[in-house]
Design a protein around this nucleic acid. Structure first.
Length: 470
DNA sequence: GTAGGGTTAG
């Protein structure tokens, strides 16, 4: 899937390498582009190599060059290494005057990385060297990262003077974030749409709708324009709370105010309505989105398909799929998962098998563990264990890993068919990935039932399962 | 080069 990217960034690398060799006068920007691409691939080693090459050839990196690296390291959870990169900038600028200096962006990147790793205290601490030694003023982005961190991580003790006042006023994570936010307004940078969106989402998350709506009003009063993200958070929150009328009102109010809800907003509402079995209303919303020139996407269709499958109307679900294909939409693995499950529940094993083959041959979607499991579970329940076994061979051939569910289904099927012969069971157990108590319970019971005590003992030892029998 | 969005669910 990433072949093109691989080729393009390798080619870019080759070209750059050649230019370096020819001692062409190069500066950071082309290297930045290459680093961005390597970062997208998560190739930190490649990034390090590129940076080393720059150094060797005396091409001075920009702060932006290092931002790319710091950001990527943080995204991969290598926060400490990112910190080292940041620290090094300071050291090097002390030793030779030519070096680059840290700016607010690289600090923000680091603050965000720390916050996302749950290391809020350190994120806060980082504002100190920023302000004092570097005389960099934290900006809205800095605050937004911290506000987001506060509202997403559990209770935090903030020992810093700067936030003493905040701690007195606020209780709980979100209150702290709000006080922090209010506190930061006036003197420091102003909150923007992202700040409000973060807090509104957090408030919706804990069903505090009065405060969420309050903040929304405040947002508009302060001249911040609302956007689709805010709309989505409110709709999603109201739907989750089952408040469909409110969710619907959010959509109409946004439209009335001249903001444009995007497809995610519509999909969230359609989904909420389906969950409440209000499928007629869901179709009205779909009509509404079509009227504003927005076409349902595969998420919209999958939502409907999942609903019809849940409510037992397989024919209608299949019709939605046909329709989506006709409209040029691509069924996804979720489309098939819903349908396969529904087929199996209705005892339509043949239909399920047909869908299963269509999935890879027509839709070009390789089957995954989940889709295999749906079939294997169903086949085992219907005592078609041999077919289930052949599907497991299929999994092996396609390099799809069976999981606990697969083995649970299979062992149950084997037991019911009295097919727990040693060889078969042993070989299956050897391949069972994470044998848990449920998976192992069946063979354990079986071995003790047929009086194979020696085998039972070694089986228990080998698989580290506990049993009251052994 | 930095910040905010849970469609579904074996």
């Amino acid at each position: 899937m990433n072949t093109t990217l691989l080729v393009s960034s390798d080619q870019a690398w080759n070209v750059l390498h050649e230019l370096v060799r020819l001692r062409a006068p190069l500066e950071a920007p082309p290297f930045n582009a290459l680093l961005t691409e390597l970062g997208r691939r998560g190739d930190v080693n490649g990034m390090t190599t590129v940076l080393a090459e720059m150094k060797e050839s005396d091409i001075m990196p920009e702060v932006g060059t290092l931002v790319i690296l710091v950001n990527q390291l943080c995204k991969l959870g290598r926060v400490d290494e990112a910190m080292e990169v940041l620290d090094k900038i300071g050291e090097e600028s002390e030793s030779d005057g030519l070096s680059i200096e840290a700016d607010v962006v690289i600090y923000n990147t680091m603050v965000d990385g720390l916050c996302k790793a749950g290391r809020l205290e350190e994120g806060l601490h980082l504002m100190e060297p920023m302000k004092s030694t570097k005389s960099l003023a934290p900006n809205t982005v800095t605050y937004n990262c911290l506000v987001d961190g506060f509202s997403k991580v559990g209770e935090i003790e903030i020992g810093k003077e700067l936030f003493d006042q905040m701690m007195k006023k606020g209780h709980g994570r979100i209150n702290s974030a709000i006080v922090f936010f209010n506190d930061s307004r006036g003197k420091g940078p102003k909150g923007n749409t992202a700040t409000y969106a973060t807090l509104i989402a957090a408030l919706c998350d804990v069903d505090d709708f009065p405060k969420a709506v309050d903040l929304f009003d405040q947002m508009l009063r302060s001249g911040c324009s609302a956007d689709a993200t805010v709309c989505y958070s409110l709709i999603y929150g109201f739907c989750k709370a089952g408040r469909m009328g409110d969710a619907n009102d959010v959509l109409s109010q946004f439209k009335q105010a001249g903001f444009l809800p995007d497809i995610k907003c519509y999909n969230a509402l359609v989904n909420g309505l389906c969950k409440k079995n209000m499928v007629d209303k869901a179709y009205e919303i779909i009509k509404e989105m079509e009227e504003v020139g927005m076409k349902p996407d595969s998420v919209t269709c999958n939502t409907l398909i999942a609903y019809f499958c849940r409510s037992g109307d397989l024919a209608l679900a299949l019709r939605v799929m046909k329709r989506m294909i006709k409209d040029g939409l691509v069924p996804t693995t979720d489309t098939y998962r819903s349908l396969l499950h529904a087929c199996c529940l209705n005892g339509k094993t043949k239909g399920a098998m047909k869908l299963f083959t269509d999935m890879s041959s027509i839709s070009m979607i390789p089957p995954n563990t989940i889709t295999y499991n749906i079939l294997i579970e169903s086949l085992c329940k219907n005592k078609e264990v041999k077919v289930a076994l052949s599907l497991m061979e299929d999994m092996k051939a396609n390099r799809v890993k069976p999981d606990t569910t697969t083995y649970n289904a299979l062992f149950k099927g084997l037991k019911e068919k009295n097919m727990l012969e040693d060889g078969l069971m042993d070989s299956k157990i050897r391949h069972a990935c994470h044998p848990d108590s449920i998976t192992m319970q069946i063979p354990t019971e079986w071995l003790s039932a047929v009086g194979e005590l020696e085998k039972l003992k070694s089986f228990v030892q080998r698989n580290k399962v506990s049993t009251s029998i052994a």
